[in-house]
Structure formats: C-alpha cells, structure tokens
C-alpha cells in the first residue's frame, strides 16, 4: 500500500465518521462539525487520488478543486452557523427536536 491509498482510506474513514456523527447527534453545532469532518474526508480522498502519479508531479486539477472546495466549505459553514443562531433565537434551543421512534 502506498501513501496515496493510505490517505484515501483515511479520507473514507473520516467521511463515514462524520456521517455517523451527523445522523446521531441532535445539536446543530455538532452537526456542523460533523459536516466539516465529512468535507475534509472528501477532500482527502480527492487529493490522495491525485497523488497516484508515481514519481511525477501530482495532478493539479483536483488540487484546484479542493482549494475552491475549502473556501466554499467555510462560507457554507458560516451560513449554517448563522442559521443555527437564528434557530435558537426562534425556538429557544439549538437542537433538532427528537422524534419518537415508533
């Protein structure tokens, strides 16, 4: 296993770790943290797959995608945090209501 495959597997692990935390937790801030972890996992998979070029320079197109992805992710996080603040201002709690299981 080379470096690229190792980091690609780590990225996949991060993605599913974040997905589990996103589904399981009810607090909005935790959900936003989990989404950021998922995003980092996806970026890691992309760049790890771009590093499969052997001895040559890595493929720069996924690098460009991930750079724009990081900036878009932070602005989406900022919007999500503003929404979470608004949810708390309107409903008093920063959590999604727990639905009763049948």
């Amino acid at each position: 296993m080379n470096t690229a495959l190792l980091y690609a597997l780590v990225g996949a692990g991060l993605f599913f770790l974040g997905l589990y935390a996103l589904i399981v937790h009810a607090h909005l801030l935790r959900k936003i943290l989990a989404i950021n972890v998922m995003g980092s996992g996806v970026f890691l998979v992309l760049v790890a797959l771009a590093a499969r070029t052997g001895e040559a320079a890595p493929d720069p197109v996924p690098h460009a995608m991930v750079i724009t992805g990081i900036v878009v992710a932070v602005s989406a996080t900022a919007l999500a945090l503003a929404l979470a603040l608004r949810v708390q201002a309107e409903t008093g709690r920063a959590e999604l209501p727990e639905e009763p299981l049948e």
Partner: peptide
Amino acid sequence: LLGLLLAVLAAGLGYVLSSLPSPAPGLS
C-alpha cells in the same frame, strides 16, 4: 445498525479505492 451499515459502506468504499489503478497520471 447505523454503525454497521456505515461500516459496510466504508469497507465497500475502501475496496473500490484500493482497486483503482495505481500509477494514474490524470491530467498532469
């Protein structure tokens, strides 16, 4: 059950990633 399902998905994704061609120049 959620953890098991996600573990299965993660294993599947890991298998897919490890079966990708290893020297792959892409667009460089």
